[in-house]
Write a protein that binds this DNA or RNA. Structure first.
Length: 485
RNA sequence: CGGGACGUAGCCUAGGGGCUAAGGCGUCUGCUUUGGGAGCAGAAGAUCGGCGGUUCGAAUCCGCCCGUCCCGACCA
């Protein structure tokens, strides 16, 4: 019974699946590639969502909702866009028992339906900027799926903005990238690298794609969010012109940006251990669980005592639950709440009542601490704050430990364990290397090592002197290479 | 979409042509317990993934299909 979770070292994929299922975050659905998000998984998503939503509104965006079904012809208006998404589309051909004149596709993303309306809504520079976000589900027919990380249907947010000038749109792209970085690092405690995607990795239809990339505990990279500068591509495709301040007609400049329920997978993979889920307090459904310990004759007193302290904590703004379920033993509950990822456990029994103390046990470190009841609120708050920062620090240290400068192809092959490719996970992590800018080099490295160019990190492009680590031609960029999800 | 593994109760596993499909965990009832996954007694729970075939007889053999996982291919 004790080994519900396959150890990480034995089988990382299975470990991840075991956590998702045992912590009751999600379940498989009858339809291949789609998943059921269970209440506990959804609660985490709600907390992530609410924080982003608050930030979007702070930066001037409004929520709206565009429909699920999109006429096929819309997708076809932007050549690169349709080419990028065509293989993943689900298409509705029948409705009301009859074949439709024009098939609809289920949105893989909403640029096209949104821009078809922006054409009507934007006439003048006075209508700009137009800053809209939507929370929605999207569908992309995926061949190989993984709970949270890649499912055919997933939940996300997509921001779609229109601006007067190129500069304004570029600023918006970076502003939202920064919102992503800040929320993911501070609330999900996942350190990320911000960077620019290469031509072959960028969004179909974008001029430039910015991203936040994170390192999971198996040292693979996970793209955790993207922000695109769309230039005038969609404005031209949908003929969205506006009258400028100078009185001319010009196409508007656009951005789009999104994060998804994939972030839930990122949280799991970044922090959890062989006992189960580990959650940052800020997104945990409950920050503290009380496990009362009693016998029949002490039950009433212990429960009353635990309830009293839990009320104080709640009043101080801490999310608390008291596990007063009679049918399982304290030992069971300890293991169960550890599996579920609750950041802090408080054990209260007759002996603690007697001593006027509480036992605080941290989920992240397992550290046990006795604190006077009078200091309960401050001690709990301090512990939660410390968990929040140390999860981030620990993940950051891990990433640094597995990030290495590599200067040439033999070095890359060695770092990514090209010899043992296909069996063991013999990949090193993030390789920081110079790159000439050619897609051929990306393809070459991918063929040899399965590693791809994750991004060209922002703020790391100065003083590029030397040659491409793959082909030896003069380098133009500094890039991070890694195997990825 | 190719290669591999698997599919028997909520979960894990046994049974590989022949009586009523077996066990552990969990669940329910009662009692008793509770400081790291307690104990006793009783009970419920299975169209053996689906369809078709071979056979007097199929969980078991054969074919097709579906699903899950792994490895590839593919993939903002």
């Amino acid at each position: 019974m004790a080994d519900k979770i396959t150890p990480k070292e034995v089988d990382y994929s299975q470990w991840y699946i075991d956590i998702v299922l045992n912590a009751k975050l999600a379940d498989y659905s009858p339809v291949k590639g789609s998943m059921v998000i269970r209440p506990r998984g959804y609660a985490i998503w709600e907390r992530i969502r609410d924080e982003f939503d608050r930030r979007f509104k702070e930066t001037g965006h409004q929520n709206a909702y565009f429909p699920l079904l999109i006429p096929m012809s819309f997708l076809e208006k932007e050549a690169e866009h349709v080419e990028g998404f065509a293989p993943e589309l689900a298409v509705v051909t029948h409705g009301g028992g009859e074949k439709l004149e024009e098939p609809y596709c289920i949105r893989p993303t909403s640029e096209t339906i949104i821009w078809s309306k922006y054409k009507d809504w934007i006439q003048s520079w006075r209508d700009l900027p137009l800053l809209i976000n939507q929370w929605a589900n999207v569908l992309r027919w995926e061949k190989r799926t993984r709970l949270f990380l890649r499912t055919s249907e997933f939940l996300w947010q997509e921001g779609h903005t229109a601006h007067e000038t190129r500069e304004e749109a570029e600023e918006e792209t970076l502003r939202m990238l920064e919102v992503y970085r800040d929320v993911v690092e501070r609330h999900l405690c996942i350190p990320v690298v911000t960077g620019i995607k290469s031509e072959s990795e960028k969004f179909a239809g974008a001029v430039q794609t910015y991203c936040i990339e994170a390192m999971m505990q198996d040292r693979k990279a996970l793209q955790a969010g993207t922000s695109h500068f769309l230039g005038q591509n969609f404005a031209k495709a949908f003929d969205v012109k506006f009258q400028t301040r100078a009185g001319n007609l010009d196409y508007v400049w656009a951005t789009s940006w999104g994060v998804s329920t994939r972030l839930v997978g990122a949280v799991i993979m970044t922090h959890s251990d062989d006992k189960g889920l580990v959650l940052p307090p800020s997104i945990a459904p409950e920050e503290v669980v009380f496990v009362p310990i009693y016998k029949n004759d002490t039950k009433a007193a212990v429960l009353a005592y635990a309830n009293k302290i839990s009320v104080e904590l709640k009043a101080a703004g801490v999310r608390v639950i008291v596990d007063s379920d009679d049918s399982s033993s304290p030992g069971w509950k300890f293991a169960e709440w550890e599996m579920r990822g609750t950041p802090l456990r408080i054990e209260i029994g007759p002996r603690d009542m007697q001593a006027e103390k509480l036992v605080l046990v941290r989920r992240d470190s397992g550290e046990k601490k006795f604190v006077p009841v009078a200091e309960a609120v401050s001690a709990v708050k301090a512990a939660l704050a410390d968990i929040q920062t140390s999860l981030y620090e620990k993940a950051k240290a891990f990433r640094l430990e597995h990030t290495q400068d590599v200067t040439d192809l033999p070095g890359l092959l060695e770092f990514f364990g090209a010899e043992g490719m296909g069996t063991a996970d013999a990949h090193g992590g993030f390789a920081r290397a110079l790159w000439c800018g050619s897609a051929a080099c990306e393809a070459d490295l991918k063929a040899k090592t399965k590693a791809t160019l994750r991004c060209m990190p922002l703020g790391d492009q100065e003083g590029i002197e030397g040659v491409c680590a793959i082909c030896g031609a003069p380098a133009k960029h500094r890039a991070l290479f890694a195997r990825n999800y």
